[in-house]
Amino acid sequence: MLLNTEQAHPDHPQLDRYDTATLVDALAADQACAAEAVRAAGPALAQAVDAAAARLREGGRLVYAGAGTSGRLGLLDSVELHPTFSWPHERALALLAGGEGALYRAVEGAEDSREGGAADIAAAGVGALDVVLLLAASGGTPYALGAAEAARARGALTVGFANNPGAPLLAACEVGVLLDTGPEVISGSTRLKAGTAQKIALNTFSSAVMVKLHKVYGNLMVDVQASNAKLVKRALRLTMLASGADEAAASAALAASGSRVKLAIVMLKAGLGAEAAQARLEAAGGSIEAALRR
Rank of each mutant, 00 (worst) to 15 (best):
E36C: 08
A44D: 14
S70I: 12
E36F: 09
G59F: 02
L81Q: 14
L81N: 12
A67G: 13
A67V: 11
P43F: 13
L73R: 09
V24Y: 04
V79D: 15
D25W: 03
A35C: 08
G74D: 08
G42D: 15
G71Q: 13
Q47S: 13
P43R: 10
F85N: 05
L45A: 11
R61G: 09
P88W: 03
S78C: 13
A29V: 00
A51D: 05
A40N: 15
W87T: 07
A52L: 10
G42P: 08
A53D: 07
V63H: 04
E58G: 07
R72H: 12
E58D: 14
W87S: 06
R39Q: 15
L27Y: 04
L76V: 09
S70T: 10
D30P: 03
D25S: 13
A51F: 05
S78Y: 00
G42N: 15
A37I: 07
G74E: 12
P43Y: 14
G74W: 02
W87M: 05
R72Q: 11
L76K: 03
P83Y: 07
P83N: 03
L62A: 08
A37Q: 13
C33I: 10
T69F: 01
T69Q: 05
A35L: 15
L45Q: 05
L75V: 09
L62G: 00
L81S: 11
G60C: 08
D25V: 01
Q31R: 02
G59W: 04
D50Y: 06
R55C: 00
A53G: 03
P83G: 09
G42M: 13
A51Y: 00
A28F: 13
A67D: 14
A52V: 09
F85S: 05
L75Q: 05
G74C: 08
E58V: 03
S86P: 00
A52Q: 04
D25I: 00
T22P: 02
A52D: 10
T84V: 04
L23M: 13
L75I: 03
A67T: 10
A53Y: 10
A41H: 13
S86H: 14
V49Y: 02
P83A: 10
R61Y: 06
A32N: 10
G71L: 10
V24S: 01
A29H: 07
L45Y: 07
A54F: 08
G71K: 04
A34F: 06
V38S: 11
D25A: 14
V79E: 02
R61W: 01
E36I: 07
G66P: 08
A48C: 09
L56H: 05
V79G: 11
D50I: 08
R39C: 12
L62F: 15
L73M: 12
A51T: 01
V49A: 03
A53T: 01
G66V: 11
G66T: 10
G66Y: 00
T84E: 13
G60F: 04
R61T: 04
G68H: 12
R39D: 15
G59C: 09
A37V: 07
A46F: 02
G68R: 04
D77H: 05
A65R: 01
L73Y: 07
D77V: 05
T84H: 12
W87D: 05
A32S: 13
L45K: 06
Q47M: 15
A51H: 04
A51P: 04
A32Y: 06
P83E: 12
G71N: 12
R39M: 14
V24D: 01
D25T: 01
Y64N: 05
D77S: 07
E80C: 06
S86C: 00
A44N: 11
D77L: 04
A40S: 14
S70C: 09
E36Y: 05
